[in-house]
Amino acid sequence: MHRICILGNSHVASVKQGWDKISGDWPGIDVSFFAQAGNQGLQSVCVDGHHLTSKQSKARNSFSLTHGKERMDIGSYDSFLIYGARSRNYWPGDTFYSRSCVETVIDDLTCDTPAQHVLSCLRQVSEVPIFIAHSPLLAAKKIRDRNVSKEYLDGIQILNQLHYSKYNAEMVAQPLVTIVNGRNTAPEYSWGVTKLSSVLGGSDEKSNSADNTHMDGAFGEVWLTHFFTTRLSAFFKT
């Protein structure tokens, strides 16, 4: 049994819904969550012994809801996935930039994000694999094509080479089948998105219909299936 904890912000709602649909297909994988909507909660987490917790009561309450406990035992997991939490991908474009310039922008993109803070906390006490998922690409209003830009994949590669490799971590690209217009998420994944608090609280309250940043459970299902298949293949479904 491979135990993985998914940490993140409101974007975790999508993968939680996805996991609820497919968990039966992956008996070798046990998934926990540790999330709070917004970013302040994750930014407030700290390492206490071998546990991850927060000094903010609001964050601890959210962790209780999403994780079952206010504190997470870091040592009890075989890997971590930091999902969303303001982690962003890098778009290198076709302009030439010096290495120093690229390193600087990578630092700008990653420093001070809750994702980076959580990554640093986990690495203080754990050496297990850590994966990072950038916040989903904005949902397209219309589909022009179903291409994936090379720039997107290049950006992920550069982020991994210049930044995440230092933490023995890896940013995982969004499944390519969910991408349209080179750089957007297919619009159908953003329709009828359910809020994180509702997902975890068992209700079905929907996000703002104009929200093109959050994705639905179908997206989470595709995302996790792709992730398990490509990164946790030792625990393939039976």
């Binding site: 778009w91 474009g93 302009t95 600087t104 700008d108 993109l109």
Partner: peptide
């Protein structure tokens, strides 16, 4: 026509 990389802070864009 020659822009800083996307995501670079304003301060660093000026520095470069």
């Amino acid at each position: 026509p020659e822009q800083a990389p996307r995501g670079m802070s304003a301060a660093n864009a000026t520095r470069f």
